[in-house]
Computed example of a mutant assay.
Amino acid sequence: MQLIGILRWLVELGRMDVCAEVSMMSLYNAMPHIGHFHAVLHLFGYLETHLSREIVMDSAYMALTDIPKSEWHEFYPWAKEVVPPDMPEALGRAVKIVMFVDASHASNLVTRQSRTGVLILLNHAPIVWYSKKQNAVETSSFGSEFAALKTVVELVEGLVYKLQLMAIAILLLITTLL
């Protein structure tokens, strides 16, 4: 259990390459077996052989002209963006939020639960990485992908709200890995 706790801290500190594996091992934190112990030792062996991994925090702005313009107003004419009443006016150039989301349908062979993986980039810098099993058992891959998209939308809504209150202009892009 202590080793899994160490691995969870490593993921929080930036080792996102083992995020999904640590999340899977965390499921067995309450009652680990010897096989789980060997899997955790294997994770530490991987980390020892890949010490030079690093996250590149690139704050460079990307060209915003190559993004296709989507007009949804004809489909949803009543939709309006909810903004806080005391939100300051955005200053400077817009930052681009890019989200990658995927779900592995029924990846847990015992419970048949799917797993959601999320990576959110601000300009080129990864700021949120997330891997968690889904709460419900979905009967199709469409359902598990839809549940994963719901999760990433909730994460991004919170991030956008924070950035708006810091007077940062935002451009959103959503990508799903199918």
Results as ranks from 00 to 15, higher is better:
Glu154Ser: 15
Trp9Leu: 09
Gly35Cys: 03
Gln134Trp: 04
Gln134Asp: 05
Trp78Ala: 14
Ser26Glu: 04
Cys19Asp: 08
His73Leu: 09
Ile97Ala: 03
Leu173Val: 13
Thr116Val: 11
Thr116Arg: 01
Val95Ile: 14
Val152Phe: 03
Leu43Ala: 01
Arg53Ile: 10
Leu64Met: 13
Pro126Val: 05
Arg93Val: 02
Asn108Trp: 00
Leu10Met: 15
Val101Trp: 01
Leu47His: 05
Glu138Asn: 05
Glu138Lys: 01
Ala63Lys: 09
Trp78Gln: 12
Ser140Cys: 05
Met87Trp: 04
Phe44Cys: 01
Phe146Asn: 06
Gly45Arg: 10
Glu74Ala: 09
Lys133Ala: 00
Pro32Arg: 05
Tyr161Glu: 09
Glu12Cys: 11
Val156Thr: 15
Ser70Lys: 14
Thr116Met: 01
Leu155Gln: 15
Trp78Met: 11
Asn123Gln: 15
Ala136Phe: 11
His33Ser: 13
Thr65Tyr: 07
Ala94Tyr: 03
Met57Gly: 00
Asp17Tyr: 05
Val18Asn: 04
Leu121Asn: 06
Leu163His: 07
Ile170His: 05
Tyr61Leu: 12
Gln2Ser: 13
Arg93Phe: 07
Gly35Glu: 12
Val118Phe: 01
Leu13Gly: 05
Ser52Ile: 06
Tyr161Asp: 09
Ile67Cys: 06
Thr49Arg: 14
Ile55Glu: 02
Ser70Glu: 15
Gly45His: 07
Glu157Ser: 14
Ala79Lys: 12
Ala79Gln: 07
Val118Glu: 02
Gly5Ile: 06
Ala147Tyr: 01
Pro85Ala: 10
Ile168Asn: 03
Val98Gln: 08
Thr176Asp: 10
Glu81Pro: 00
Tyr76Arg: 07
His73Glu: 12
Asp66Ser: 14
His105Ala: 00
Phe75Asn: 10
Tyr161Thr: 08
Leu64Glu: 10
Phe142His: 07
Ala103Met: 04
Ala20Pro: 00
Glu54Tyr: 06
His124Glu: 13
Cys19Ser: 14
Leu159Ile: 11
Val118Ala: 01
Ala94Thr: 06
Val18Gly: 02
Ser23His: 02
Asp102Arg: 04
Gly143Met: 06
Lys80Tyr: 03
Thr175Gly: 00
Ala167Trp: 03
His36Asp: 08
Ile170Gly: 05
Glu74Asp: 12
Leu172Tyr: 03
Asp58Ala: 07
Ile55Pro: 02
Asn135Gln: 14
Gly158Arg: 13
His73Val: 11
Glu138Met: 10
Ala136Met: 12
Met24Cys: 10
Leu165Gln: 15
Asn29Glu: 11
Gly35Gln: 10
Trp78Leu: 13
Leu13Met: 14
Ser59Phe: 15
Ala169Ile: 03
Lys132Thr: 05
Leu159Lys: 08
Ile127Leu: 10
